[in-house]
Computed example of a mutant assay.
Amino acid sequence: MNRIPNPRHSALLIVDLQNDFLAPDGAYARGGAVSAAALQLPQRVAPVAQAFKQAGGLVVCSRFTLWPNARGEPMVSSHLKALRPFLKRGDFSPGSSGHAVVPPLEPHVDVSVDKVAYSAFFNTQLEWVLRRAGVEAVFVCGIVTNGGVASTVRDAHARDFDTYVLCDGCAAFNDDAHRAALKDIETVAAVIRCTDATDMMHCSG
């Protein structure tokens, strides 16, 4: 991971920056569970996404999804229901406004994959998309650092992608968890800043 990746073989992977997590009228705002640090991410990540697009890179977003059952109720894992009891019918539902990528990032997204667990690779078509697009290097950002981001990073590493994490493009529910996750991630990925990723995309590859 010491070489500068070719932008045309690179992907920015944005984990779960969705309205239901961040918007004032989203599910997490209703439940009083919005991460203050996460609210800063869309404006910070948008220039990186734009740089990827300009350089010919791929921008992919994972969207956490609560699929409805036959009665229209969300199928929520028991551990998540215990942690977030406020989740209700319509939250993170496919096609809803809450399920959508936040507005500052949506125009830059090439591909979205819907996920049901922490990792953006688990039970999704993400790996197929990345392989088909010729991606060799994956730059990961989003929420939360010690959850979806960390799980996605480890799965990318296990699949032999050159893996980078944007330390200031990620957030958790507290700084200690964020820092601890980044420290652990350093064992499998390069931890860089958003400006570093943008600079890499401006290089010829």
Results as ranks from 00 to 15, higher is better:
residue 78 S to Y: 13
residue 70 A to I: 15
residue 1 M to S: 10
residue 194 C to K: 02
residue 75 M to P: 09
residue 92 F to N: 01
residue 168 D to V: 13
residue 138 V to K: 06
residue 126 L to M: 06
residue 176 D to C: 14
residue 144 V to M: 15
residue 140 V to C: 04
residue 191 V to C: 12
residue 116 V to K: 04
residue 201 M to E: 00
residue 200 M to H: 09
residue 106 E to Q: 11
residue 152 T to Q: 07
residue 76 V to I: 15
residue 101 V to E: 04
residue 147 G to D: 13
residue 1 M to W: 09
residue 92 F to T: 03
residue 182 L to H: 06
residue 32 G to E: 09
residue 56 G to V: 08
residue 157 H to N: 09
residue 1 M to L: 13
residue 147 G to T: 05
residue 148 G to L: 02
residue 118 Y to G: 06
residue 57 G to Y: 02
residue 146 N to S: 15
residue 159 R to I: 11
residue 124 T to R: 01
residue 188 V to W: 12
residue 18 Q to H: 05
residue 36 A to W: 10
residue 128 W to Y: 15
residue 131 R to D: 13
residue 177 A to T: 02
residue 59 V to Y: 11
residue 64 F to A: 09
residue 89 R to F: 07
residue 21 F to R: 00
residue 10 S to K: 05
residue 59 V to L: 14
residue 16 D to A: 04
residue 63 R to N: 10
residue 72 G to M: 15
residue 44 R to C: 08
residue 23 A to R: 00
residue 145 T to K: 03
residue 62 S to K: 03
residue 163 T to V: 08
residue 191 V to M: 10
residue 145 T to P: 05
residue 76 V to K: 03
residue 72 G to S: 12
residue 110 D to H: 09
residue 116 V to D: 02
residue 183 K to G: 15
residue 177 A to K: 06
residue 138 V to Y: 05
residue 106 E to G: 01
residue 132 R to Y: 15
residue 106 E to T: 03
residue 182 L to E: 11
residue 155 D to V: 04
residue 87 L to K: 00
residue 196 D to Y: 06
residue 17 L to Q: 03
residue 163 T to W: 01
residue 83 L to C: 12
residue 159 R to L: 12
residue 14 I to Y: 01
residue 188 V to S: 10
residue 200 M to A: 10
residue 55 A to Q: 10
residue 107 P to L: 12
residue 191 V to Y: 07
residue 179 R to Q: 12
residue 53 K to N: 15
residue 107 P to R: 09
residue 205 G to I: 06
residue 87 L to Y: 05
residue 188 V to F: 14
residue 117 A to W: 08
residue 72 G to K: 15
residue 100 A to Y: 02
residue 52 F to T: 00
residue 89 R to C: 13
residue 126 L to P: 02
residue 70 A to V: 15
residue 99 H to A: 06
residue 186 E to S: 13
